[in-house]
Design a protein around this nucleic acid. Structure first.
Lengths: 222, 222
DNA sequence: ATAATGATGTTGCAATTGCAACGAGGTGAT
DNA sequence: ATCACCTCGTTGCAATTGCAACATCATTAT
């Protein structure tokens, strides 16, 4: 039990709440804790879901099953991560199927029970509500930012927009790392991996950027 | 005052709350009501915002000002609509500039004051919180759906995905209307208007769809 | 060291799409 | 009715991108 509470202190939903506070919340909400083996289904695409999932150990993967049967991964979340919180609060049905990516232990907080709970400490209630709303709102803006990467005119502009967003962390020589593989980058830009490699080559040849694998440097911002 | 309350009953944030309830909320939160002339700035891109705006009359437009100075409209909201609620609850700065699209009267509810308010009626508080979260969560899924339109492989698939989402409202002959101009559709699909017109022609010629202007019919789903 | 595996770079070719320019139909104001 | 304006369709051409196949470079296991 103390083990669980310790894990929850690392969870965004409980930001700013003490261990004692978390303990009292657990007592009040009596959340389910369920175990999953790798590949077990947690949320089914097309169904409603009113549980906020907190990953105590292991991880999950959210996938969309296309009409022709193959699964495309939408997001992966690991220990201390939260999932299902946006869906719980919405009127929508799940756009994805969620499965365990490894042996996992997950705590489920019922959304309605959370909202309707009678907290003695109203400030603590407000704090959780604030945390919950921040998580959903920030997700919205992250998604919006990702979308802007997809809609900017040409591949080259998208690459620059992407590199810009990481260039803050450049070292004294101007080099910085990006966290995605070429394949993942291509998916962010909505293009083919080879098209991306090709355009990166072009930009290097034209003297606009320098790079090796995942380390980049912007030489000239067209 | 009764006029204002009547307007607020049409507002999503107050869904399920009686007029008396709305009145007591107004008394408690003492929201600002400000007037704007067409073109007046309400929210500035890059700044924080902690106010939920409710449009009592008139309308607003949210725009992104690109580096080369021209403004692209991100969204438009009219009477009884709400804006700024996602931004208020997030840690983000505004990605858009919001201006009045006509002479407008707007009520601003301070986010922190709303969350921290001491409601006598806790159920009413919960109701507003629920409404607020539903609005943000649903916005997330709307955005996600729009993004999926952009990322699906080919233009033709995107067109089908788009038409599908409106084909529920088909009449007995299978025709249905869509609410966007070609230009707006092209923007949704992230393509050129002429490319869209061309592909629509192709699909008509191949016998997959029939259409005239904004009225469509799906003949054969490839 | 060698082999196996995975990520990245390169390239030819074909298909898709962007761009620009123009024509046709529809709508509203005068 | 005429004109101005807006939306939509069409088309030629060039640029971009997708696809597929193969080469190179790194990393890890044996």
């Amino acid at each position: 039990m103390t083990e669980i509470i310790k894990a929850l202190t690392e969870c965004e939903l409980f930001t700013g709440i003490s261990r004692d506070g978390i303990k009292s919340i657990i007592d009040l909400l009596a959340p389910d804790i369920r175990s999953f083996r790798k590949g077990d289904t947690i949320i089914v695409e097309g169904e409603r879901n009113r549980e906020i999932g907190i990953i105590l150990s292991g991880g999950i993967v959210a996938q969309k099953i296309s009409a022709d049967g193959d699964a495309s991964t939408v997001s992966e979340i690991d220990k201390n991560g939260v999932f299902g919180e946006i869906l719980s609060g919405s009127t929508a049905i799940s756009p994805v199927t969620v499965t365990a990516s490894s042996v996992s232990e997950i705590m489920f907080i019922n959304y309605d029970r959370l909202i309707d709970a009678d907290f003695d400490d109203r400030d603590m209630y407000r704090r959780i509500i604030r945390n919950l709303i921040v998580m959903v709102s920030d997700s919205y803006f992250r998604l919006q930012k990702r979308m802007s990467l997809l809609t900017v005119g040409k591949l080259r502009q998208r690459i620059f927009a992407y590199l810009d967003s990481y260039s803050d962390a450049a070292d004294e020589r101007g080099f910085f790392d990006v966290p995605h593989t070429r394949e993942a980058q291509a998916s962010l830009f909505g293009c083919d991996r080879s098209a991306l490699s090709r355009e990166l080559s072009n930009m290097k040849r034209e003297g606009l950027i320098d790079y090796y694998r995942n380390t980049f440097k912007i030489l000239y911002r067209s």
